[in-house]
Each structure stands twice: as C-alpha cells, then as structure tokens.
C-alpha cells in the first residue's frame, strides 16, 4: 500500500483518480474498514497537512473545513451559536477519543445512513464543496447521497468545505438520536428538525431522518403539513402519525420497521411538544 502525504490541495489532487485510491482524514472509518478486510486500498492520500481545519463566519454563512474534527465542532462557539442543531448532534457522536480523530468531511463522505452530522446538515441545507483537477463544484447535501456508503463524489474529487447559512433567532430546532446506549452508539434512528416560529405558527419547516432508509432522507410531506400551522397538541398528534406513514424504514441488525416507525412519531412529538411548551412558558 502506497501512502501519499501531500502538502497542499493542488498536490493532493494529482494523486486522486485511481480505482483503489482512498482518502485518509481522521481514519476512524477507513482504518476500521481496512482492518476488517472490507477494502484493500492500493494507495492512500493522507490529507492531514492540507490546512482544511477551520470554522469561519463569512457574512450570513458559516464555512467549515472538511478536516475539522467532530470535537472541534462540538467545542466551537460559532457552531453552538449559529448552528445549534449541529452542535447538539456532534455532542452525541462516538466517544471523546473518536470525536478527536473523526472529521466532518469523513462523516459525510463515508455516507452512512446513520451518520450523525448529516441530518442536521440536511436541515441547515448545507452545500458541500468538492475540488478536482477539473475545478470546483458545490452540491446540496440533499443531493449528495445515492445509497448506503455511496455518494456523488467522483474518483478525482474530494470534499474541501461544508457551507451553510447561520440560523437566526426566530428559528427553532432539535436533534434526537436513539441507540443501544448513550456513548459509542450507532443510531437506530435519528431526527433533526428546523423551522421558523412566529408566535406559535411554524414556517419553513425541514425534517431529516437518519437510519430509516438507505441514505439520510427529508420527510418532506410531514414538513409541508406543518408549514403555516399553529403548534397545538392536536396538530402535534396528527403530524406524529403523518411521519410514520411517510417513511419506509427497514429491519436490520440494529432495529425493526415497527420500532423505527413508532419512534419517528415519538421523537417528532417529543421535540415539538418541547417547543410548544417553551413558547407557552415565554408568553405567560
């Protein structure tokens, strides 16, 4: 196995394109797959030295370098303030050790339907920046995944940056994850929610679910139902049934169809009730 250690992006791009060439970021997915003999790379491009570890504010946008670790995201004031839904999700990932090594670019590129940064990035409508010798392109996260472990990255490309809009003060959000236990757990189901609230009325609702399909998915019908609705117990009861009808989960080693359906409803209900009660508390 040949290992390249490029010093800049331009050099890195010259090594990409081969069939069994893999990018090494934090290695928490890649090294495990090599050890499990799931893949046999001919060459590895170690991108550690590319200075892609940053979180920047750029006007209304936040730019995160692909090599930013999950722990850096978790401790970032910028993420905590402007993308709290992502902040919450990264706090529920792996263990401190895994969070220190694992990167946002690796979590996205790995394309697990249970990847924890992805549902929040769906709700933030993030753009993924890819570079190759041919140039640069941006792809919306909602169009990035094509199947479990599969995405639209071409062989000669890699992710350099993740970009999303700052959340504003009228935006409400939550992230819920259910697993076998608290630490080191792959989601059986996860749900990220975002929307705008004026009084008790919701708008611009976005809901993304992890681990219920072959990729992370939007629950679009459910979100549409909530748009321009006033948050009441009745609305919440109805919508928690709609989401169960909208999704088509699978049974696998981690969980069953029935459990996932029920929990999608329960997680949405719990999150929306919390929002409703906090509005009521503020108003009285």
């Amino acid at each position: 196995m040949k290992v390249y250690n490029p010093k800049n992006i331009k050099e890195a791009l010259t090594y990409l394109g081969g069939k069994d060439t893999h990018i090494l970021a934090g290695g928490t997915d890649l090294i495990v797959r090599i050890k499990d003999r799931d893949i046999y790379p001919k060459s590895i491009v170690n991108i550690k030295m590319l200075h892609l570890d940053y979180i920047k504010i750029n006007g209304d946008f936040i730019k995160v370098g692909a090599l930013t670790s999950v722990e850096t995201l978790y401790r970032s004031e910028i993420i905590n303030t402007y993308a709290p839904v992502l902040s919450d999700a990264v706090g529920k990932m792996g263990s401190p050790q895994i969070r220190n090594l694992g990167t946002i670019g690796g979590n996205i590129a790995n394309a697990s339907p249970a990847a924890d940064t992805v549902p929040p990035l769906f709700v933030l409508n993030a753009g993924i920046t890819l570079k190759s010798r041919r140039g640069k392109r941006a792809v919306a996260i909602g169009e990035f995944f094509t199947g479990p472990g599969e995405n639209i990255i071409e062989r000669d490309e890699f992710i350099t940056e993740v970009v999303f809009k700052k959340m504003e003060s009228d935006e409400v959000w939550f992230f819920k994850k259910l697993g076998q236990r608290k630490a080191l757990t792959i989601a059986k189901i996860s749900l990220a929610f975002g929307g705008r609230l004026s009084g008790r009325k919701l708008n611009e609702v976005s809901i993304a679910l992890g681990a219920v399909a072959s990729t992370v998915i939007y629950a679009k019908r459910t979100a549409d139902f909530l748009n321009s609705k006033r948050l009441t117990r009745d609305v919440i009861d109805v919508v928690s049934k709609i989401i169960q009808k909208e999704i088509e989960p699978i049974t696998d080693i981690r969980s069953t169809v029935e459990y996932r359906r029920k929990m999608a409803g329960a997680l949405l209900k719990q999150g929306l009730l919390d929002i409703m009660y906090s509005v009521i508390a503020r108003q009285s």
Binding site: V3, Q97, I98, L101
Partner: peptide, 28 residues
C-alpha cells in the same frame, strides 16, 4: 483494535485518541 474500547488511549497534542486508529503517516 477498532476504536471501541479505549484501552489504547494516549494523549496526542493534548487530546485523548485511540492509538489503534492512528497511523505512522499521521504522526510527524
């Protein structure tokens, strides 16, 4: 040997990491 148990934890540049998932090429 796969990042799950923490027995191999060392401190790398001030942070705890599983040494079973860090490669030589990342150490310089």
């Amino acid at each position: 040997g796969k990042g799950e148990c923490g027995a191999c934890t060392v401190i790398m540049d001030g942070k705890p990491v599983p040494s079973c998932l860090v490669l030589a090429c990342q150490l310089d």
